[in-house]
Simulated assay, not measured.
Amino acid sequence: MIRIPLLLLGAAVLAVSCQNPRNLEIIADQDRNMEAMDRENSRLRNERDMAMASATEKGEMLTLEQASATDLRNRVAAMEADIAERDAEVEALRGRFAGTSIGVERRGDWIVLNLPSALTFQSGSATLNTKGKSGLQKVATEMTDNYAGKTFWIEGHTDNDPIKRSKWESNLHLSAARALSVADFLIKSASVDSSAIRVAAHGEYSPKGDNASKEAKAGNRRVEIVILD
């Protein structure tokens, strides 16, 4: 009988205690602190997630950069190997034409054979001489044995001295006649496929040198055979 009032008294005391303004303020402060802690925890989790995402992205970017660098190195190595192979090809051709006065050079992807007119023609003439025919026979062997299936441009060139004592109307006509003579010999006498031959005439308009000296003029008087890839 005595315990019931005591329990009721305890409940009453608790109720009174909770209604105490100071206690209510403490509880409110605790609630605010809990909310602040929740917000801070949420912020920290977001920062952690963002940091992890950034690290993943940077890792992926680094992987891509490494792959790009590797690809670039491979491409450069392939280009260098191709250049070395082409240079070796030119050197090998020069060796096979040694002693013929036929020049060999590379222009980009093309190989150019240079037949100076001193080797192939008399002054003002478009008739091949004996040395010219001998040199062209070696050229034809290269064309049929090592460059079958390629296209060959045969291009005539002259210096800028005007025509005075020959039948040609101009240097352009002379360069055309010389290019045609070379093409005709390669097709008829050396069995080069005619469908692979193209002929062009430049006259004095595409010089190798400046025509300021006898040596430069001699270098400009030529027939070039351009081997296209």
Rank of each mutant, 00 (worst) to 15 (best):
R3T: 12
L9C: 07
S17T: 14
N20T: 10
N23Q: 09
E25A: 15
I26M: 06
I27H: 02
A28S: 12
D29P: 00
Q30G: 12
R32P: 00
N33D: 02
N33Y: 08
N33P: 00
M37K: 12
E47R: 06
E47A: 09
R48W: 08
A51D: 09
A51M: 10
S54G: 02
A55L: 10
T56W: 08
T63V: 00
T63F: 07
L64P: 01
E65W: 12
S68L: 13
A69R: 08
T70R: 11
A78V: 05
A78L: 08
E91Q: 14
A92C: 03
R96W: 06
A98Q: 13
G99S: 10
G103M: 08
V104C: 11
V112Q: 10
L113M: 04
N114H: 14
L115I: 15
L115S: 03
T120M: 14
T120A: 15
F121P: 09
Q122A: 13
S123G: 08
G124V: 11
S125E: 12
A126D: 15
N129R: 04
K133L: 05
G135F: 10
L136S: 03
Q137M: 09
K138N: 08
V139I: 13
A140D: 10
M143T: 05
T144M: 03
T144K: 11
D145P: 01
N146Y: 04
A148V: 09
G149P: 05
T151R: 10
F152Y: 11
I154T: 08
N160C: 11
K167F: 01
W168R: 01
E169Q: 13
A176C: 02
D184S: 14
D184E: 15
I187K: 12
V192N: 03
S195F: 04
I197R: 03
A200L: 12
A201K: 05
H202M: 14
G203K: 12
G203D: 04
Y205E: 07
P207D: 07
G209I: 01
D210E: 09
K214T: 06
K217N: 13
A218I: 06
G219I: 02
I225N: 06
L228V: 14
